[in-house]
Amino acid sequence: MSETQLHPLIAKYARKGAQRQPHCAGCGNGIIAQCMLRAIEELDLDFGKMVFVSGIGCSSWIPSPFFNTDVLHTIHGRPLAFATGVKLSNPDLRVVVFTGDGDGAAIGGNHLIHAARKNIEILAILINNRIYGMTGGQVAPTTPHGMKTRTTPYGNLEYPFDLCKLVEAAGASYVVRWTTFHVKQLVSSMKRGLLKEGFSFIEVMSQCPVQYGRFIGIRDPAKMLLMLRDSSLPISKAKSMSEEELEGRIVVGEFVDRERVGLTKAYKKLLNEVQA
């Protein structure tokens, strides 16, 4: 592919030799990567002063090695803990974590609630496709109750997390949920999250046509996107609805947007006081 044929966002932000995304056709990760780059472009942020940290799983391949800036591709479940060290040591860097529902809510669930509690100035994008995609379609802590997966052949006995409620309760400054259908809203929330003081959490409900699609019997990405659209419900409407009415719906929108002092800001104040 010659330089002139590249999408302008790719030409500007992609690492040479890594301009293609590694994801399966129809995956939501490409949409989310583009939304992120659009948000950065629209805010005119210095890409070189951004650090992208990811864990293990499909979502972690969004910045690695694709984004042409500092990228720390870490181990399974711990990207938020690595990112905490990066941000504390150099608060001038804008740190963004890409994680998935397995990486961020199962093995890394503890780090998620503690990053939110610490309210450290990191933007975490958690891509929730409700299944383990890379490893072959195993049940996740976000898989709907009753659903059959590779490892719940008789149906899932457990119930999924409401991650936005969890992170809000843990103390994050900014919590929002969209789907890969809501690209405009997603770009706008990413911009808000990138500038927000404190921990920002964006959950993106995404389609996995290969694994999730296999088990619900719909493997067409476009149909899955429409499903995401049709099952979405704005948070303002959801507030007056009962649990039964909300069954199977995806509540989208801002869960919280509040002013709380971020950890590195608080630490800077402490340093000034101790050294005074």
Partner: peptide
Amino acid sequence: GGIYIQMEDEISSIASVVGSSWAGS
């Protein structure tokens, strides 16, 4: 002027140490 942080477990302690090292500390 250094950073002390108590993490949620030893896994995140060493993980943040690695992150910090790449940030130059």
